[in-house]
Structures are given as structure tokens and as C-alpha cells.
Amino acid sequence: MTIALVQHFYRPSPRTNVSPSLFAVETLSLSKRYGKTDALRGLNFTVNEGEIMVILGPNGSGKTTLLMILCTILKPTSGTAKVVGIDVVEDGTKVREVMGIAFQEARGFWRHKPSSILRFHASMFDIDPAKRQDLIERTMKDLELWESRDKLFMHLSGGQAKRLETAKVLIQRPKLAIFDEPTSQVDLRGKRKIWDKIRELRDQGSTIIVATNEVREAEYLADRVTILHQGQRVVCDTIPKLKDAIAGGDIVEVDFEDPVSEKLVDSLNGLGGEVSMSPEGNQLRAKVSRAEDWVPKMTSASYVAGAKIASIRITEPSLDDVFLHFTGKALADQP
């Protein structure tokens, strides 16, 4: 498997500085400083091939700076960044051939129509001219842009312009697709469409990075999540593992038909987690690391003690809670 991955990314060329890499994206001690402000501080970050990596962080956390470096618009102050094994500073043009980005603020030629913008984009990335028109039409229809095909870019609504930005990446089908807050200004129906298309792109083989500060977007899309805070990576893992990592992360509420005995409470306390009983003694609330492990043990203990369970409710923490746990601040409270 490792050899296959290396072979996939390592395509030696006399003109490019390609080095073997196991990751679709890899940064090492990456820093970016604007004047006296550090936007990124020694960031180590990797993205596996074919996954959707969501970068979660408030405004000013360094998300956009990281993306701008990966798509070669910005040069890092120090450290290295590689996209499919190609150094973004040493061989930016080569990186740009395999990468596509949908900007946070839509960028288009003001006096061009959406189809003309997409045709230009497709031509710059060598999309087969025979298939180009078909692909553009299909993508525009998928993203509900077809009705706006005769409008100039400057007359598109914010949501339409954002969808056009996404469409550029979708027709390009790059090895690395970057979406910077892809659904800001887009209505709920449009959001779902964009999310589905992003997942489809992943299923077609692209590696995807999505930067967002929307928890729902992250939960819908992410294979893994990296939390950025003040230019540093705080944590990176799958969503279930991030939630599990919170001590007392799952909340289990159990209703018993009758008040339970002290003995059962003692035995439940011995199962781990933080257990509290209601004053009436028939409702239990436990903060546990993994509800799926704790609940079977609890039901066994209750059965042995002869306590009848009326209902069990399990709630899990949101990514907001995860962010709060790892940074000490709520995502929504950030500037």
C-alpha cells in the first residue's frame, strides 16, 4: 500500500522538484508573518490522499493563509509546504496544475457570463474541448446556475457567485481541491447541493481541503478535522475520535421505573465517568467518554441489581464543544 502511494505521487520529472510523499498535502514548521502579526506559527499539517480534511477555526485562525500558501498565492515566511510531493515555493506552476481553489470571496471577470468564465477556466486546465461544453452545462445545472447563464458575473447574487466558484473546481477535478468557506452566503438547499458535490469529487479521487467556521458543514463533510487556533494546529483527528477525546464527552441520561438502590449507584460509579442521580433517585445522568462502551455495562449492572430501565438518551458533544475543550474558547465567540 505504501509503495503504491509513493508511486502514485512520485512522478520524477527533470524539471520539477518532486519528492516522495505519503501525503497529498504536507507542511512542516510552516510560518507566515504579516508585519508584526503571525498568521501561521510553525504549522505541521498533513492531508491523506482521497480524504476530506476540514480545517475548523474562527476568523483569523490562519485558515485562509494556509490555503493561500498551498495554492501558491502566498509565499511562506519560513517552513515548507508540499502538494502531492511538489514544493509550493520551488515549483509553484507545477502545483497549480494539480490544484484548484474555490475562494472565500468569489473571483470572476465582471463582464463575463458564468459559462464563459467556466470555459476559460476549463481551457486553462486542459479539459478536453470535446467534453468541455457538456461538462460545463451539467455542472451549471447541478449547481442551479443554468438559469443565470445569461447574466454577467457582476449581476450574480452572492450565493450564485459562490456556486460559480465551486463549479470552477468541479469541472477541473483537480488532484487537490480547496474550498474556502464554500457555502457562506448560500441558502440551506444550495449548501446541501455543494456539500454533496464536494463529497462526489472526493469519491472520484480528489483530495479535498475545506476551511470553514461552520460546525454543521464540518460535521457533514469531514473525514478528518484539523482545528486551527491562532495560527497553530490544536488537534487533528476524525470527528468521533475528537468527541471521544473529551473527558465525559458523551452524555447518557437514564430513567428508571423506580428509585434505584445505593448499591447500584456505587456500582455505576465504578464503571467510570461522572455519574449523578436526581433527588428522587430514579433519574441518572452520566458524563462518559464512550457511551457505546458504558451503556451495555450500565444495563448489565442494572439488570443484576433488579432495576428496571424506562428509557435511555444519549447525546454527544458538538464540534463547538470540541473546539471549546481544546482551545478553551467557544468557536462562536471568536472575532
Partner: peptide, 16 residues
């Protein structure tokens, strides 16, 4: 206009 509207940034992401 391209500088202020960000089209230059778009151009900078093209393989040229």
C-alpha cells in the same frame, strides 16, 4: 480592477 476585485489572485492560481 483585477487587483482590487481579486481577479489577480485568481490568475495567480492558474498554471502559468
Amino acid at each position: 480592477l483585477a487587483l482590487r476585485e481579486g481577479v489577480v489572485q485568481y490568475y495567480l492560481t492558474l498554471p502559468i
